[in-house]
Design a protein around this nucleic acid. Structure first.
Lengths: 199, 199
DNA sequence: AATATAATGGACTATTTGGTACAATGATAT
DNA sequence: ATATCATTGTACCAAATAGTCCATTATATT
């Protein structure tokens, strides 16, 4: 059994945080283990003490994202119980990329795109997060529908898919254009469309 | 001045085609020059005879995509003059990923996501292609509008942005989920929304 | 046929990469 | 205090990588 001390937890967290930042900024493949160590100030033995290999830290980073979603800690809230909440969900993503001058897209979608083809487990990690988001969105629509506040023809799950896709696409477009305006347009339209099912 | 013979053109094209396929399948960073050469059957000297470096072949691949868009050669047609054409534009993307069992996303958006942060020229290459697509979409909407066949409140450019984003997001989601259904939903909704501006 | 130029084969190199080995240090619980 | 186990530093390694060099072969023009 491998115990882990307070100190160890801190070191591990520092490594994960550094990796997360670098993966988001430059991508996973463009980030070497050495670079993570240099910036986090940790040594190689520490890294391989806490992580099996490079893939394992990608897993840890994704785990981190899932946890902040679940705990509602991050900048994106998934407790969606009103149209205002939904609006906030969309626009928090826009604010997120604006913080980085539209030079980054979604950190999770990015990893999924880069590694899904070569590492099935990582693809599943990413997928799990996406499913989590999807459930939160579709539950919101389903609840509305149950209350008779949503058009009967509306399919909660496909609307949720639509929501996730538009956000992902918007963030990617913003990065490629180095401008968040197109992302805003996209999100504006997507919201408008979703609201059109409201009654 | 470096001349290039028929034979040379063929070799070069073979290398570009192989690179294109591998970049799409596994990503740029996950594809080594050696792998491209092994599969294309070319030697190292040939590669560096025709391309300055690895980035240069990424550029060539993107150039290729732009050209097939411009020439209307590829599976995605950008001559959009009717709602049917627009529909075809959207669904041709879906068919595209289904050909690969939903294991790939957009080859162009993918490269943009992977390399935009480290290579500004490649980002511009990708952006140029996106702008080209955007213009074709927005021209369609603008033309409709001029003919009075589109709602006056509709903004052609932001609708074009919306269209591109939804497609990109849909393809990414399909890859992560290894299932094209969500992508279909997205595209269905996007089309429905766009058509709602028709009159 | 001779010359020039393009196309090719492939060995070689310098660097970076992910990962290992192992010893040394720190903390903790009995 | 000492035995135990977690933590850390660093040297090291094998493989892979992008890119160079140079010699050879093919092709075409005169």
């Amino acid at each position: 059994m491998k115990e882990i001390s307070e100190k160890g937890i801190k070191t591990k967290a520092k490594i994960v945080e550094t990796a997360r930042e670098l993966f988001h900024k430059n991508g996973v493949k463009a980030t070497s283990v050495d670079e993570i160590l240099k910036i986090s100030g940790a040594g190689k033995s520490q890294f391989y003490h806490y992580f099996k290999n490079k893939d394992d830290i990608v897993h840890a980073v994704l785990q981190f994202y899932l946890e902040i979603f679940q705990q509602g800690t991050g900048s994106v809230k998934l407790q969606i119980n009103s149209w205002d909440d939904l609006e906030e969900f969309f626009y928090s993503h826009i604010r997120g990329i604006e913080m980085f001058n539209s030079e980054r897209s979604c950190p999770i979608g990015s990893i999924g795109n880069e590694l899904s083809s070569e590492n099935e487990l990582i693809r599943q990690d990413v997928n799990l997060i996406f499913e989590y988001v999807r459930n939160n969105l579709s539950n919101f629509f389903a609840d509305l529908k149950a209350e008779g506040k949503l058009n009967k023809t509306a399919d909660p799950e496909s609307l949720a898919d639509f929501g996730i896709s538009t956000v992902q696409g918007a963030l990617l477009l913003a990065k490629i254009r180095k401008d968040s305006k197109a992302a805003e347009h996209t999100v504006d339209h997507a919201l408008k469309y979703l609201k059109s099912f409201s009654k």
